[in-house]
Amino acid sequence: MKNRFGKLALTTAIAASMLPALAAARPVTLTTTLKNYGGGGAYLVLYVTDAKGVYQGTLWMAGTHGKFYRYLKQWFRATRGNLAEVNGITGASVGSGRSFSIKLDLSDALFDAGYKLHIDAAAENFRESPSDVVVPLTKAGAGKPVRGRAFVKSFTYSM
């Protein structure tokens, strides 16, 4: 289990509510399954924007070589590729047809408040797919799989 602090916790209005010690937080499992697109490992980044689409913070980066982050276009645009955004929340890239899960403590305040979870995806020699997945964070939406545009076969968050 990973605790999320970092920028998301410190800079936004929901900061306090994201700290488990201060507000109700719950473990949330994020599961992403990729399509069988037939290429090498895909880079994925999971991040949160507010209702207006303004970047709030990153939840997870799948892919370890920073020089490829530019191909995660919207995320890179929002963060200007700042590696500090993903410090400590980085894992391996995800192979074609494979799935990966992460478990995070997320604040209750993130749900049913207009926040959206985005996944930008890219793989070598394939398309770049910014906002491959965009899904509003709601308690009702938990456990319901969502389909992505180019890479993501299904994405589910469950509490």
Partner: peptide
């Protein structure tokens, strides 16, 4: 270059 030991010049795209 993949490991970033040598620069391939691609780490910094033009300023958005």
């Amino acid at each position: 270059a993949t490991f970033g030991v040598i620069s391939d010049g691609m780490a910094s795209p033009p300023i958005f």
